[in-house]
C-alpha cells in the first residue's frame, strides 16, 4: 500500500466536514475490511482516509422497539450476529451471518460499510432489502431517510454523495413473515457468492400474501425482482408457482459474467435458487 494520511474525527458531523464532495481520494473508513482490499490492489489510492471509529458511540449499537431494529451504522457484523434482539426480530439476519465471509471480517466490518461499499457480492444488503430496511443518511445539509433498495445505483455505485455517511439502518421486524437467504458459490464453499437470493414473505402456510425477492452477486447490484414478487403474491405455493417465480427472476435480472460463471449459467442459477429460496422460507429452513 502506498502512503496516505489518516484523520480520526470524534463526531459524525466533524467527519462529514472532513469529506470532500469533489475529491474521490478522500474517503471514510469504518471497519476497513473492504476498503483495505481496494487499497492493497491499487484500485483505490487515497490521499486521506477519514476514520469513523472514534465518532459518537450512539452510532454503534442495536436498539429494538416494537416496530423493529435501529442498528447504528458502525455496529460490526459480529455484534449483529451475536445480538439476541436481532435473533428475535430478524432471525434471517442471524442465520445469514454464519456463512457471511468469516469470523475475523465479521468482527471488524460494519453494517454501514457493508452497505456504503455498494459491492453486489455482499450477503447482508439483499437480506436487509428483502426485509424492507431503510437507512438514515447524514450529510452537510442534515439528515435524510432512504429505502435501502434506492441506495444501490450500479456496480459498486450508490446514491450517496461523497460527503454523506450512513448513520443508521432501520430494519422492520420480521414478525411472522417467512424469510430465507441462499448463498450460492461456484468455486470453493467459502467463495464470494456467485448468487445471493433473499426472500421475505407474508404467508399463511403455503398461501403467500406478499413477497419481497432480492437477487445479488450475479447482478450488477442487489436488485428486487418485482416480476418474481408478482408471480408469488396471492398464490399458493406449488411447483408451478415456484417455477413461474424463478423464471420471472431469471428473465428480469441484469447479470454480469465473471470468473464465477457466465451470464446464461447464472441465469439458470437464479431460476433454480429463487425457487429453492421461496421453498426454504415456506418450509422454515431459513438460510442455505
Amino acid at each position: 500500500m502506498i502512503p496516505f494520511d489518516l484523520a480520526e474525527p470524534k463526531s459524525l458531523s466533524e467527519a462529514i466536514k472532513l469529506l470532500d464532495p469533489d475529491d474521490a481520494t478522500v474517503r471514510p473508513i469504518a471497519g476497513g475490511t473492504a476498503l483495505m482490499l481496494m487499497m492493497k490492489a491499487g484500485v483505490f489510492r487515497p490521499q486521506k482516509l477519514v476514520s469513523l471509529r472514534k465518532i459518537e458511540s450512539k452510532y454503534s449499537g442495536i436498539v429494538a422497539s416494537h416496530d423493529g431494529l435501529r442498528i447504528g451504522a458502525m455496529t460490526t457484523l459480529g455484534v449483529i450476529e451475536r445480538s439476541a434482539e436481532v435473533r428475535k426480530h430478524a432471525p434471517v439476519i442471524t442465520r445469514t451471518m454464519i456463512t457471511l465471509s468469516n469470523v475475523r471480517v465479521r468482527n471488524v466490518a460494519t453494517v454501514g460499510g457493508a452497505l456504503a461499499h455498494g459491492d453486489p457480492h455482499m450477503d447482508l444488503p439483499p437480506v436487509l432489502m428483502a426485509l424492507g430496511a431503510t437507512i438514515t443518511i447524514v450529510g452537510p445539509k442534515g439528515e435524510r431517510s432512504l429505502a435501502l433498495e434506492d441506495l444501490f445505483s450500479g456496480y459498486y455505485e450508490t446514491t450517496l454523495e461523497k460527503n454523506e455517511l450512513i448513520a443508521e439502518v432501520h430494519v422492520p421486524s420480521q414478525g411472522p413473515k417467512k424469510a430465507a437467504y441462499m448463498k450460492v458459490t461456484t468455486g470453493s464453499a467459502d467463495d464470494w457468492p456467485a448468487l445471493g437470493v433473499a426472500v421475505v414473505m407474508e404467508a399463511d402456510g403455503k398461501a403467500i400474501k406478499s413477497a419481497r425477492v432480492v437477487v445479488s452477486a450475479a447482478t450488477t447490484k442487489a436488485t428486487r425482482m418485482k416480476s418474481a414478487e408478482a408471480a408469488l403474491a396471492g398464490k399458493t405455493v406449488d411447483d408451478k408457482v415456484l417455477a413461474q417465480a424463478g423464471d420471472a427472476a431469471a428473465e428480469d435480472a441484469e447479470i454480469l459474467a465473471d470468473v464465477r460463471g457466465s451470464v446464461p449459467y447464472k441465469r439458470e442459477l437464479i431460476r433454480v435458487y429463487v425457487r429453492r429460496a421461496v421453498r426454504a422460507a415456506i418450509d422454515g429452513q431459513g438460510a442455505h
Partner: peptide
C-alpha cells in the same frame, strides 16, 4: 478479545 485479520487492520487503529 476479538480475532481480526492483522493484514487488513491499520496499525493506527
Amino acid at each position: 478479545g476479538l480475532a481480526v485479520s492483522g493484514c487488513l487492520y491499520l496499525a493506527s487503529f
